[in-house]
Structure formats: structure tokens, C-alpha cells
Amino acid sequence: MTVERIIFIAAGVLILGSALMVVTTRKLIQAALWLVSALFGVTILYAMLQANFLAVVQVVVYIGAIAVLFIFAVMLTRKEMRDNSTQTRSNWWFSALLGGLILSGLVFMILGEPQFSRLAESIPPGLDTLRNLGTALVSPGAYVLPFEVSSILLLGALIGAVYIASRKEEDK
């Protein structure tokens, strides 16, 4: 029971507990805040996997932007300030059964594959993953094309979101 395993189990409990609260709680604002705590647990996992850049970008993009967007959207689409009705559909037991079956199938496959119980080799000391990530994202032999296409996707999403959410004059 080394320190890393304790931290991993704590992060796992945080992530799964918060995720369960997200999908079962009745008040939507609390669901959005439990999502923030789940995303924070994922940040801890990235830091343990030594993907520093992804950990920090997770906080900036997911917690700082997407979670705030969710909270704004929840506040802007309610008729009164409290939630009173139930939030789950009447056939929630079927979704739970489906989720349970898929989970058991996946766990069975993961535990059956011997390659997956390997431990991590240590990263060679001179490797600068941040510089390699930057080089891979912009070098023509690596991944510059998905990078540029995703920037066009973000531009399209920006223009689309502003256009959809703006009030047109004749609707007033």
C-alpha cells in the first residue's frame, strides 16, 4: 500500500462518487458542482500519469470554461429558483441494468488480458514531454492537420453558438 496507490484510490473514490452524485441528484446546480469535483479528480489522475500539460489544461478548459457554461445554462433555463420534480425518467432501472452489463463486460475483458496488468516504466530522464507535445502538434510529419482542423471546428462552433443563442428581433 504505497502512497501512490492511496492517492489513486482516493482520486478514484472522488471521481466515481462525484459522478454518481451528478447523475442522481435532484437539484441541477448541485449536479453541475459535483461535475466540477469529478473533473478535479480527473486532474489528479492526469498529474499522477505525469501528463502535466493535460492536467493544467483540464482545469482551465473543463472547470474554468465548460463547467461555468453549464452553471450559466442551468441558471438561464429555469422558471423558478428551486427544483421540485424528480429528474429521472420512469425507466431508469433499464439504463442502470444496461450500464451494469456494459461495465461487467468491460471489466471482464480488461482483467482477462495479461498485457494490461503491466506496470509503468519510468520515463527516460531527458525526455521533455511538453516540448515533444508542442512539436508533435505543429510539425508536418506529425499531427498538424488534426490540429488545424480542430481550430476550424472551434471557429465554426464559436460562430454557430453566438448565432443560435442571439435573440432575433422579430421574436420579441
Binding site: 466540477v36 493544467v56 482545469v59 482551465v60 472547470i63 474554468g64 470554461a65 463547467a67 461555468v68
Partner: peptide, 10 residues
């Protein structure tokens, strides 16, 4: 630094 600013926003 930017990440800590996002926590303040929240």
C-alpha cells in the same frame, strides 16, 4: 496561473 484564476471564477 491561469488555472488558479479559473478556480477563482468558479
Amino acid at each position: 496561473i491561469v488555472a488558479a484564476g479559473s478556480l477563482g471564477t468558479l
